[in-house]
């Protein structure tokens, strides 16, 4: 079953055609990696898919709810870690307080942050903040989770902890769409990979297909990235 169906998506900023007829689907339990050079439209695609931007034409069909993890976390600085996670489930989804608290604590434990529930975001490292923001997104019980370069704002030595969290989610069959510049990670965590260039999907397929030696454009892009 497709959880997400994007059809003929187009988006222009001024006279800059950023997305030119993008179509793809994401199945339940699938991890879709999106790679491509800077400015190719990856973030714009995610922003359209999450309603932060409105497409000029095309359709986006969901069979479920979604969450988004931002590059720079966007935690609420005046809320404690726990409150960041429970506020929207309580206020927006109006769920039962005890159930939400249990869920939040379980997520914090999973993220290795059980002892941080009363901390404020400024007291945490970037990696810890990103783990809180992933917990915040998961607490809403989304059917799909989008990530826009979740490790790009982190010091290199902290990217590993976030990639591990995402790998664990993949192992739990969480449906995810992940924009990333971490090529090795994209290659081994994804079920399908999209390589975007200049607002079009240049290649789509399994990691082995997209990263195949014969795929010159992807090879050239990876070469430029050096991993």
């Amino acid at each position: 079953m497709s959880l997400l169906e994007v059809k003929n998506l187009k988006k222009t900023f001024g006279n800059n055609e950023v997305l030119k007829d993008i179509s793809f689907t994401v199945d339940k339990g699938e991890v879709l990696g999106i790679i491509g050079p800077s400015g190719s439209g990856k973030s714009t695609l995610l922003r359209c898919a999450t309603n932060l931007e409105h497409q000029d034409s095309g359709t986006i069909k969901y069979n479920g709810t979604f969450g988004l993890v931002f590059q720079n976390f966007n935690l609420f600085p005046h809320y404690s870690v726990l409150k960041n996670i429970i506020d929207a489930p309580l206020v927006v989804q109006k769920r039962d307080k005890k159930e939400v608290l249990d869920k939040a604590r379980e997520l914090l434990k999973k993220m290795g942050l059980a002892d941080k529930e009363n901390a404020y975001p400024y007291q945490l490292s970037g990696g810890q903040q990103q783990r809180v923001s992933i917990a915040r997104a998961l607490a809403m019980n989304p059917d799909i989770l989008f990530f826009d370069e979740p490790t790009s704002a982190l010091d290199p030595e902290l990217t590993g902890e976030i990639l591990k969290v995402i790998r664990d989610l993949a192992a739990d069959h969480m449906t995810m769409v992940i924009v990333t510049h971490e090529m090795n990670f994209a290659r081994d965590v994804s079920d399908k990979v999209i390589f975007m260039e200049n607002g079009v999907i240049d290649s789509y397929g399994t990691p082995d297909e997209v990263f195949a030696r014969e795929n010159n454009r992807v090879q050239e892009f990876i070469g430029r990235f050096g991993n």
Partner: peptide, 30 residues
Amino acid sequence: IPEGQYEAAKVLGYSKAQTFFRIILLQVIK
């Protein structure tokens, strides 16, 4: 207030009023 605060609130489903009074206002006051 960074745009990201509004975007995070929007994706989490807060209404405009909830976003202002719950997320933005106290940060503005500070």
